[in-house]
Structure formats: C-alpha cells, structure tokens
C-alpha cells in the first residue's frame, strides 16, 4: 500500500480521448481530451453546468459516452477501456472508485460496516462466494479479520475511529465526506474520483480533507477531483483541467491555469479593461 510517491510519476494512469456525451439535442461534452498522471492530484474545474459531473459519470460508468475512448493503465501495465465496462466492473476490475456530490453513505449501517461493504468483492472471493464462509472455514475468518484491519487503517486516516460503531447517518457532514472517501479507498482503487469533496465544508473540515487527500496520494493512489472551491484546487492539485460548455479551455499546472486569460474570462469573469473593449464593440454593433 505504501508505494513511493515518485516511483512511477509522470506515467499516464487515465487517458481520456475525444470524449463526447450527447443528451438528446444537448452536447454536454464535446470532444474533450485530457491525461491524468499516476501519483498526481488532477483537478477538473469549470463553471456551473460546464459538464464536469458528466465527465465523471462517463469515467465511472454511470453514463455510456456517445463517443470517445477512456483508457486506464494499471500499475502492472494492464489496460482497460472504461467505456466498455459496466459501472460496477469499473470499480471491481479496473480499480477506479468514486464518491458523490451529494453524499451517498449507507446511513443505516455503522461506519465500520460501510467500510466492510466496500471490501465486498475481496471478501466474497475469500468466503468462496458465501458457500465456504457458511461452513466457517478458517480462510474466511482470516479474510474478515484482514478486512477489519483495513477498515481500521482507513478509519484512523479519516480520523473516524471514535465513531466506528455509530450509524453513518449520525455523523456530522464533514465526517460523512471523509467516511465516503475512506469507503472508496477500501475498494483498493488505483484512481480515486472525488466529486466536489469540499462542498459544504467549513475551513477546519476543509483542512482535514486536504490532509486526508495528501495522505491518500502518498499511499500511491492517484486522485481525480471536481471542485468549485478555487482555494482548495490551487492548494492541493498538481494538475488542473478547465472545462467550459463541455469543452476544454485550459490544461496545466495550477499557476499556469490561474494566469490563463481564457480561464479568467470564463471562470472568474472578464477583466475591467476588457469590459471597455467589449462595450466598444457593442456600440459599433459588431456583437
């Protein structure tokens, strides 16, 4: 689990090529391509309605893209075309896991149980698809103890050990966010996709989240995240991709993106002197 951070950096883990998604007459994503590098935190940003979540849903299999190719390269060199896999296979086989913009926890299960459900596939195999487990063979007992250890590891990382036996629905909002991330990590992903992880968090919770994300990256998983909160994006990400109206308008390091005039125009608004220019153009009736 503790692979060195820089061992395989700069190797592409996720390659999205010519991705398009059409909903009826609406082109939500139009010929969108980007790469995410292994060991990086890649951020996907853009104004409301730019199509960020649609890209996410395409990558994680909740939508089937109209066009395009999404290639995932695993650490051992195996490659998967995500658009051809079913949604649960993307987590099970290709090892990409995700969280949701509106938290989707199993609120009636305890925090620990949430993390055990995430290890379903490993435990299923260990229990001989339930048959051997029903007989109480030691292999399954050992596997379930290992699963609890793994859950403990992530509880500790997410700072939730104290609440392990409480129902997930009883946690405060920030803790629920961290639990959802810990749960996604319990599936043992190579790429973790986070949909607005900092939404609705107060500054302190936000700081705790940043620590968690950094420690996940240091553990060897790559992160792809959607974020609205620019301060979070600029602080933690290594690579930023900017999306507007379903098209990529900028791609690079946070500093590069921050100073890209296209991004400033699209995301932060148009600068003052440009406003004058546009007004002039308006007067001349060119727009």
């Amino acid at each position: 689990m503790t692979l060195g951070t820089n061992v395989m950096k700069n190797e592409t883990i996720l390659k999205v090529e010519h991705l398009s998604m059409r909903f009826g007459g609406l082109m939500a994503i139009d010929d969108f391509s980007f790469d995410a590098k292994r060991g990086d935190i890649t951020a996907l940003i853009g104004p409301n309605g730019a199509g960020k979540t649609t890209v996410f849903n395409c990558i994680t299999g909740f939508y089937k893209p109209t066009m395009g190719m999404i290639t995932l390269t695993q650490r051992d060199g195996d490659q998967y075309l995500l658009e051809r896999l079913r949604d649960f296979e993307i987590t099970k086989v290709a090892k990409v896991s995700r969280t949701f913009q509106n938290i989707r926890l199993f609120s009636g299960l305890t925090v620990l149980e949430n993390l055990l459900v995430a290890q379903h596939n490993a435990l299923m195999k260990a229990s001989g698809y339930t048959v051997l487990g029903l007989l109480g063979l030691p292999a399954y007992t050992k596997a379930s103890a290992a699963a609890i250890d793994k859950a403990k590891y992530w509880l500790d990382k997410a700072n939730l050990t104290e609440r392990a036996d409480d129902p997930a629905g009883d946690l405060p909002y920030g803790a629920q966010r961290r639990l959802e991330i810990a749960r996604a990590m319990c599936t043992g992903p190579e790429l973790l996709c986070l949909d607005e992880p900092a939404a609705g968090l107060n500054p302190r919770e936000s700081a705790a989240l940043n620590t968690l994300l950094h420690s996940i990256r240091d553990d060897g998983a790559s992160i792809l995240l959607i974020e609205h909160d620019m301060s979070v994006v600029m602080e933690i990400s290594d690579h930023v991709v900017v999306l507007e109206y379903g098209q990529k308008i900028s791609d690079g390091t946070p500093d590069h993106v921050k100073n890209d005039p296209k991004v400033i125009a699209a995301y932060l608004g148009v600068e003052d002197d440009e406003v004058e220019q546009i007004e002039e153009q308006l007067d001349e009736g060119r727009i």
Binding site: T60, F62, D87, F88, E89, I90, T91, K92, S97, R98, T99, F100, R104, L105, F106, S107, G108, L109, E113, V117, A118, H120, N121, R183, A184, T187
Partner: peptide, 16 residues
C-alpha cells in the same frame, strides 16, 4: 443491506 440503503453507492463500490 447496503442495497437497501443505497443501490447507486453499491454499484460505485463494485458490487454487482
């Protein structure tokens, strides 16, 4: 039980 709580989250965790 997870399925009863949230089916979409189940699929996101690789459960068929």
């Amino acid at each position: 039980e997870a399925l009863r709580e949230d089916e979409i989250a189940c699929r996101s965790l690789g459960i068929n």
